[in-house]
Write a protein that binds this DNA or RNA. Sequence first.
DNA 1: TATGATATTGCAACTCGGTTGCAAAAGATT
DNA 2: AATCTTTTGCAACCGAGTTGCAATATCATA
Lengths: 153, 153
Amino acid sequence: MVMLRTCLETVIKKFMSDVINDILKRNQLSVTDSRRKILEFFHHADGALAHADIEKLSGESFDRVTIYRTLQTFVEKGIIHTIPTADNSVKYALCKDECEAGHHHDDHIHFLCDDCGTTYCLETHVPPVQLPQGFVTKRTDVVVSGRCGKCSN
Amino acid sequence: MVMLRTCLETVIKKFMSDVINDILKRNQLSVTDSRRKILEFFHHADGALAHADIEKLSGESFDRVTIYRTLQTFVEKGIIHTIPTADNSVKYALCKDECEAGHHHDDHIHFLCDDCGTTYCLETHVPPVQLPQGFVTKRTDVVVSGRCGKCSN
DNA sequence: TATGATATTGCAACTCGGTTGCAAAAGATT
DNA sequence: AATCTTTTGCAACCGAGTTGCAATATCATA
């Protein structure tokens, strides 16, 4: 029984590892420890992550500069996207499937919980917005803040 | 003719000055040069202003610390409100009429022009957003970016 | 699997937006 | 006008983010 579970965990771990590697290779990025680790963080996190969160999670594993550069690279490649939060700090979240590089567009809403600080990417689509004559929309960001499901009990 | 215009300008200036003074007094703020000047900037600007804009407009008139503090005070009093921009910088705009202090709520949409950098407060209201069970909305920010009327010709 | 070209990392130093403490100056109140 | 309170300016500081460069790791090729 114990044997079985250990074995299963190994297989799952192996599988996850392959998924991560695939993402990196598909984006023509060399596979390095920091990139894999940071991608894993995003896959395990249920919300968006700020630079500081990643720094905490990684402990002393790698330099803060590396984190900055890795995040930049991921954004450029369209693996993650930035989220404009209400308090004007920067958060990042995995793009649904594949945004194309330089075209990170995610047509969904972000929810920021004032209590626990978690940022959620909701599946709700952004409602179309009526603009004055001559205005052309390129991108729409909707940030709702309040209290999330977990915190409102 | 020239006399008349000069006279009219004087009257208008006097009137504006009174309006500015009124706003400050109504909010229990002492009337100082910097506060009046900064409020005037907002009244003349057709869009939102960043700290940097005000610094440029004011030249050497007053210290950057004063600008920071003045903006903070105005936000606290509900005279201006912050706008979350797509690039995660901070902009400020006059509140419509009076938001109550500490309750700067403006239920409108912000438009950020990628070309000229101007931020507009549009009169369009924020459409209601459907959230998952248990989520409670406190505030909704909508930031549309693209090209404004002036730049799209 | 060893090797060289290329890409990435870590470090140190720096920039820039914003804040804080305190003394000087201005505004408000009598 | 005198005094009390608030605001300003200065200098120093803080933290987030960036840059240059040498050291190191990855990748492709032999």
